[in-house]
C-alpha cells in the first residue's frame, strides 16, 4: 500500500492549543510542508511573535527565538545578519504585525532583509480576547468596538500585502486563504514561492494568510469559514501583489572628491 499523505517532518506530532475552527494549524502545516520541500529545517530559525502564534516552538521542530510584541522582523533581521546561512521566518498575527509592529515590518521589508514573513490576518486580537485589530472590518463588532468598527473614528482595515508590495526591498508579496480546497492548494503554492525567494537569496518575501477566529468572532467554525469567502476576500483580495526578483540595491554613491588647497581642518580633526 502506498502512503500518500503524512505529517511534514518539520511539524511536531503534538495536538495544538488552537480553538476548534481556527486556521492557524492549517497554515502551520503549509509552512512546515514548504520547509520540508526545500530541506531547510536544519538551518531554520523561526521568530515567534506575541499572540496565539507565540507557541511556534511547540509545533515547529526548529530552533526558535521569541520576539517582543511586534518586533519579530527586527529580531529576524538580527538573526539573519548574524547567520546569513540560516533560513529565517517570522510568524505574526495582525495586532502584532499591523499595529504595534508597523515600523519593524515596514523597515525590514524596505531594507530587503532576506527573510520570509508569514502574516496571519484574522481581523482581531485572538489571544487577548477578541479586541479590535488594525485589520478589523468596518462594522465588525469586537470587545473594544462594541458598536462596530467606525471608519470615521477607527479608520479602515489595513491591507498589508498591498502596502508592502510598494516597497523597493520586497521581492514577493501575496495574500492567500485556506477556506476552500482550491484556495488552500493555491496558498501552498504561494508559501512555497515565498520560501523559494529566501532560499535563492532574492530578498524579502511576505505571505498574508486570511484566517478564522470563531472564538473571538462568536460564530461556529463553519460560519467563520464562510465569512472568509464572503466578506473578507471581498475586502482583502487574494493574489500576488509583487512577484519579482528584479529588485537591486541602489548603486553606490560616487567617491568623494578630494578637497584641494590648504590645511583641511575637519580632516585634521579626524586624523588626530
Amino acid at each position: 500500500m502506498q502512503q500518500v499523505f503524512q505529517r511534514p517532518v518539520s511539524l511536531k506530532d503534538v495536538p495544538t492549543h488552537f480553538c476548534p475552527g481556527c486556521q492557524h494549524g492549517t497554515i502551520h502545516r503549509l509552512v512546515a510542508e514548504a520547509m520540508d520541500e526545500f530541506g531547510v529545517r536544519e538551518r531554520t530559525i523561526g521568530v515567534a511573535s506575541v499572540g496565539c502564534s507565540v507557541f511556534l516552538y511547540g509545533y515547529f521542530d526548529v530552533d526558535v527565538v521569541e520576539a517582543p510584541h511586534g518586533r519579530a522582523p527586527a529580531v529576524a533581521t538580527g538573526v539573519k545578519r548574524a547567520r546569513p546561512d540560516s533560513f529565517v521566518f517570522t510568524y505574526q498575527g495582525d495586532g502584532d504585525l499591523a499595529a504595534i509592529g508597523t515600523a519593524e515590518i515596514i523597515h525590514a521589508a524596505n531594507r530587503g532583509e532576506d527573510i520570509t514573513v508569514i502574516f496571519v490576518n484574522n481581523t482581531t486580537y485572538g489571544m487577548t480576547g477578541g479586541q479590535m485589530a488594525p485589520t478589523t472590518m468596518v462594522g465588525q463588532k469586537t470587545s473594544t468596538s462594541p458598536y462596530g468598527r467606525d471608519h470615521a473614528k477607527d479608520g479602515s482595515p489595513i491591507r498589508m500585502a498591498e502596502l508592502l508590495a510598494q516597497l523597493g526591498g520586497v521581492a514577493f508579496s501575496a495574500r492567500v486563504a485556506v477556506n476552500t480546497p482550491k484556495n488552500l492548494m493555491d496558498a501552498r503554492k504561494q508559501i512555497k514561492k515565498a520560501f523559494r525567494y529566501q532560499v535563492e537569496g532574492k530578498g524579502f518575501s511576505f505571505i498574508e494568510a486570511l484566517s478564522t477566529c470563531p472564538t473571538a468572532w462568536g460564530v461556529t467554525p463553519i460560519q467563520a469559514n464562510e465569512r472568509i469567502g464572503g466578506e473578507m476576500i471581498d475586502y482583502f483580495p487574494l493574489g500576488q501583489f509583487k512577484d519579482t526578483a528584479q529588485w537591486k540595491p541602489q548603486p553606490p554613491p560616487p567617491a568623494p572628491v578630494e578637497q584641494p588647497g590648504a590645511l583641511s581642518f575637519p580632516e585634521f580633526m579626524n586624523e588626530i
Binding site: 585634521f268 586624523e271 588626530i272
Partner: peptide, 8 residues
Amino acid sequence: KSVLPERN
C-alpha cells in the same frame, strides 16, 4: 607630523 596625512 603625526596627525597630518603625508600629503598635507
